[in-house]
Amino acid sequence: MRNNRLVALTLIAFGLFAWLESQRYGALSRLFPQVVALALVVLSLVLLAQTFTARARRAEAVRREGRAEAEKPDLRSVGLSVLIMIAWTLLLEPLGFWTASLLAFALLVVTLRTRDQDAAAVWKTVLAGVVLMTAFVLVFRITLRVPLPTGLFW
């Protein structure tokens, strides 16, 4: 429920911001975004109100219990992967599509390595990825003539 409260408050702020930002636009340009922003604020208020009802508290108690038993997701890897993904997209232009993708891919595979994967398995995975990605890049670039960024390398 604390989650929901946070979500509601964030979205209320977001909606108010959109409403204010729209003030600068012409009458017909701001009508729609302002109506939607208002709806967003009202709906978020409803969500906020719901977190205070008795039913919500009961549901929360049930959820807490359930969560204790559930498997713990590996959030550390998620964080690392997100960082690698961000680097991946930012390096596309400077390094080139192919190079950036290969590097980031290899890094990601190593990061995601599970307990039952030995070094050989990791290398096999990287290799498979390299083959597939190279094939894709070649098809896009040469056959379909899509101008993927070439950057410093390729």
Binding site: Q117, G129, F136
Partner: peptide, 14 residues
């Protein structure tokens, strides 16, 4: 998953 996840992301990018 170690292969699928990065590969799907690659496809998303391209």
């Amino acid at each position: 998953i170690t292969l699928l996840a990065p590969l799907v992301f690659f496809l998303s990018v391209i």
